[in-house]
């Protein structure tokens, strides 16, 4: 089971990295979203996998049966999902603003903070 997930995660990361290597900020953004999903799956797999039984203690029992899924990675992923969603939202709006302010989504043309061919600093004293 972990094997399938490991390979699947490899595909997620490969796709995410490929998208993030793009020049276009929108594609980078898509890459980041996929990257986040890859990380979540990775955390999920890290806690080992079990099928179907959610970690909810059935009525009448005091503890969780051993067959249930590992709740800790789920809790960690919940935290991570919300965080990565927040960042995704922020970046999305930032990209949008970037497009508005800078007039481009091509990162090669975003040279306002670090302009091309700046003059040399003064060489005198």
């Amino acid at each position: 089971m972990e094997t399938v997930f490991s390979v699947l995660i490899g595909f997620f990361f490969a796709a995410a990295v490929y998208l993030m290597l793009s020049k276009h900020s929108v594609r980078i953004l898509l890459g980041i979203a996929i990257f986040g999903n890859g990380v979540n799956l990775l955390l999920f797999t890290a806690g080992r996998l079990t099928r179907e039984v959610p970690p909810i203690i059935p009525a009448g029992m005091d503890t969780l049966p051993a067959t249930a899924a590992n709740p800790l990675p789920q809790a960690l992923i919940l935290t991570a999902i919300v965080i990565s969603f927040s960042f995704f939202a922020f970046l999305l709006v930032l990209t949008y603003r970037g497009y508005q302010e800078l007039g481009t989504d091509n990162t090669d043309e975003m040279r306002f903070a670090e302009p091309k061919d700046e003059p040399l600093p003064p060489l005198g004293y």
């Binding site: 993030m20 900020s25 980078i28 980041i32 990257f35 960042f87 922020f90 970046l91 930032l94 990209t95 603003r97 970037g98 302010e101 800078l102 990162t107 975003m110 040279r111 306002f112 903070a113």
Partner: peptide, 16 residues
């Protein structure tokens, strides 16, 4: 403008 440009690079790389 500089801020938005800088922030984009900052945000993407730091998020990574």
């Amino acid at each position: 403008r500089e801020q938005v440009d800088g922030a984009l690079k900052y945000a993407i790389l730091n998020l990574l």
